[in-house]
Computed example of a mutant assay.
Amino acid sequence: MNTPASTPPKKLIQRGIPAVVAATALLFAATACAPSTATSPSTPSGDSPGSGTGVPALAVNEAAAQLLPDSIKSTKVLRVAIPTNEPPTQFYREGTQEMTGTNPDIARLIGQALGVKVEIQVANFDSIIPGIAAGRYDMTVSSMTPTEKRMEVLDFVDYMQMGTAIAVTTGNPLGIDSEGSLCGKKVGLLTGSYQLTVNVPKTNKACSAAGKEQIQTSEFQDTRQAISALTSGRLDAVLADQPILNFASAQNSQVEVAATYDFAAVGVGLPKDSGLVKSVGAALSAVVTSDSYRTVLGKYGLESSAITDARVNFAQ
């Protein structure tokens, strides 16, 4: 979802945090959505020969590792729920069932800092919180925004920042250039996303107050499905995370980003009262100040998504 530097979005609305830097040199994975049982393990020792993850090595943070719950100390495994088909944040490496992208790579950095193996378990975004509640996953690294409602059931530790973007067909025939111009439009969104649960209700309230029709929403299990609906004329716009839509517009000449706004931190989601928040919080404090973290973000053109403070339970 990164636009090349030579073709910036038509309109950029910033809210206190710089926009994400464009990415132009990523391969686009064309695989379809995988079942939630798929896994993509990584080794705690980092990018060892033949591992293929491309994740730079990071030393174990012994203080953070000592804070791990006994159950994780025993298994030395973290089960991490992540969706797929959303480059550059999460997608299958071309021709493989290996997950890559910023989220899998940051999950692997956390694993290295804690000295444990990371097992990435692919799941639809809207099934992740119920899966954590049922004990199927230990945490999620899925660009999940820490909202007050989500914090009722999960603890969060910030790990990067991103914005919301509006994608339209090239040429923007309907003149969509802001949240307000989505009133009455057919808009595609990821099921369970921040855009669907926070942005749309807020915009709908403004639409109604202005005497306009509310947004006509269509939900999808991954953003690539929504982009396909947009380019086939079934939608007027797609509302999703900025990195994903910027990448899509860079790869697809039929798509452009019309507006970007609402920059905020996203966090690692962890089960309440599991004790993991202490160890993951300490690990991420080391991760976000490391060269390895900046290398991972730079690999996907997201250097300006970096943060330096891994805040715990900071609601957006």
Rank of each mutant, 00 (worst) to 15 (best):
T164G: 13
I110H: 01
T140V: 09
T75L: 03
C183L: 08
T84A: 15
I166S: 00
E119A: 08
R150F: 11
L68C: 09
P69D: 08
D155M: 06
D105Y: 05
E98F: 11
R79A: 01
I72G: 05
Y137Q: 10
M162I: 03
R136D: 14
A133C: 02
Q161D: 05
D105C: 13
V118R: 01
F125M: 10
G171V: 13
C183K: 03
E179M: 13
V187W: 00
M144H: 02
G163T: 01
Q90S: 14
M162V: 12
L114E: 07
G175Y: 09
S181V: 05
G188Q: 05
T169W: 01
I132F: 09
D155Y: 04
P88Q: 07
S181C: 04
L67I: 11
T84C: 14
I176G: 00
R136P: 05
G131N: 05
N85E: 11
I132T: 07
E98T: 15
G175A: 09
Q161F: 06
C183P: 05
L67W: 03
S181H: 02
P104C: 10
M162T: 08
G175D: 10
K185M: 13
S143H: 02
S143Q: 09
Q161W: 01
S127E: 10
S143I: 02
D105F: 03
I128L: 08
Y137P: 14
V77Q: 05
G111N: 10
T84V: 03
E86W: 01
V168T: 03
R136T: 06
M162R: 03
I166E: 00
G184W: 07
E119F: 12
A81T: 00
C183N: 03
Y159D: 06
R136N: 12
R93T: 15
S74R: 14
G135P: 04
G175W: 08
P83I: 02
I129W: 01
C183T: 14
V157T: 13
K186A: 14
E98R: 10
K76V: 11
A134L: 15
M160Q: 14
M162E: 13
D155R: 08
Y92D: 10
G184P: 08
E98V: 15
A113S: 14
V187Q: 04
G163A: 10
G101P: 12
D158M: 02
A134G: 01
N103Q: 13
K117G: 11
N124Q: 13
P146K: 00
L174S: 06
K185L: 04
G184M: 06
Q112W: 06
T145Q: 06
I129A: 12
I129D: 09
E119L: 05
M139K: 06
Y92Q: 12
T75F: 01
E94W: 00
E86S: 13
D177L: 07
G101D: 09
P83F: 04
R136M: 11
I106T: 15
T96Y: 09
D177N: 14
T84R: 07
V118K: 04
I120P: 10
M139Y: 12
F125Q: 03
T96W: 05
P69V: 15
Y92V: 10
G184A: 05
N124M: 11
G135F: 11
S142L: 02
P69W: 07
A133E: 13
P87W: 01
I72C: 08
G184N: 03
T147E: 03
S142P: 04
